[in-house]
């Protein structure tokens, strides 16, 4: 059944793609088979991460980019990630509202995802969704996240090119932007730049960039634009293309692919290991170990070593 799904997906079946995303998102039974099949059939897409504060206009920008890319005949997959409420486990995913593709356009596929906090691995999940999009023939994959937590930064950072979307309202706070967020940006987009403060903000960013040595020979461009009016969106897309050319000039495509695959491999191994580990008897014994740590019988470090030793022994026996 999972093979069928992968085959249909590769042949462009939208329903199959939607179902495969669900399986991957839930890490449900059979999802690894699908990923494997899709991985074999994928053609690497242009992966663009978009991140920024709530209200910065990311979805509007995605919408504007879709319009331009579609005009060139490109096919696009979008995954928009919004946070899950840590209290209720629910989420309100509203990014579709701003993305107004024509209703019969089969060249665009949009999927909303909740970060499902504690489950973790959202960066890996979106990355896997990108694989599914690639297998279904999408030439561009846009990954949109709210740049508020480390997980979201990771999501954006795993794309080829990361666009940080800012608004002039945040003008005074460029200094206080979340550490790590400035660093992931390959391109800065100052949206709603018709509002006062855009020029100043561009200057602020420019001087901050000058303070740090430009790594890898790439100085992130700063584009003052307006997503809602579609102004300078083409320029943004050009800069993204330039960034890709830059990547291509300093490393070979094969090397980049290799780096990307290693990250993927590591993530997959870590997740599988984790699942395996906690699915075993040590998962259920956790309460008991916690009690032991709490009453001082053991320490977290000793307990961790003990669990790992037992796991190795268990795996050894399995061989």
């Amino acid at each position: 059944m999972t093979y069928d799904l992968a085959e249909k997906l590769v042949n462009g079946d939208r329903l199959a793609l939607a179902k495969a995303i669900t399986l991957v998102e839930n890490r449900a039974h059979g999802h690894e088979d699908i990923l494997e099949e899709c991985f074999r059939n994928r053609k690497p897409a242009v992966r663009i991460g978009l991140t920024g504060a709530p209200g910065s206009g990311k979805s509007t920008l995605v919408n504007a980019m879709i319009k331009l890319l579609r005009a060139e005949g490109k096919t696009i997959g979008v995954v928009a990630v919004d946070p899950t409420s840590p209290f209720t486990g629910g989420a309100l995913l509203g990014d579709r509202v701003r993305i107004t593709t024509s209703e019969s356009d089969e060249g665009v596929f949009i999927r909303s995802m909740a970060s499902r906090g504690a489950v973790g691995g959202i960066a890996e999940a979106t990355d896997d969704v990108a694989v599914l999009f690639e297998a279904s023939g999408k030439e561009y994959v846009l990954i949109e996240t709210v740049g508020v937590g480390q997980a979201e930064v990771d999501v954006a950072a795993s794309a080829d090119t990361t666009v940080l979307v800012l608004t002039p309202e945040a003008g005074d706070s460029v200094q206080t932007l979340k550490a790590g967020l400035m660093e992931v940006a390959d391109v800065f987009a100052i949206n709603k730049s018709d509002r006062p403060g855009a020029e100043r903000m561009a200057l602020d960013i420019r001087s901050m960039l000058e303070m740090r040595a430009s790594e890898k020979g790439w100085t992130p461009p700063i584009i003052c634009m307006s997503a809602i009016r579609g102004e300078k969106v083409d320029e943004l897309i050009d800069e993204i293309a330039k960034h890709r050319e830059h990547l291509a000039s300093c490393t070979s495509a094969a090397d980049r692919e290799r780096t990307y695959l290693v990250v993927k491999l590591k993530r997959a191994v870590e997740r599988m290991l984790k699942n395996d580990l906690w699915r075993g008897p040590d998962g259920s014994a956790l309460e008991k170990i916690a009690d032991d740590i709490a009453d001082g019988t053991t320490t977290p470090y000793a307990a961790a070593r003990q669990i790992l030793d037992r796991y190795r022994a268990r795996s050894g026996q399995g061989e």
């Binding site: 209720t88 989420a91 309100l92």
Partner: peptide
């Protein structure tokens, strides 16, 4: 529905059946 723990995708106004 969100507060009841569901993942709610909201489409916004003026949606056509398509």
């Amino acid at each position: 529905l969100r507060d009841a723990g569901m993942e709610v995708i909201y489409t916004g106004l003026h949606q056509t059946p398509e």
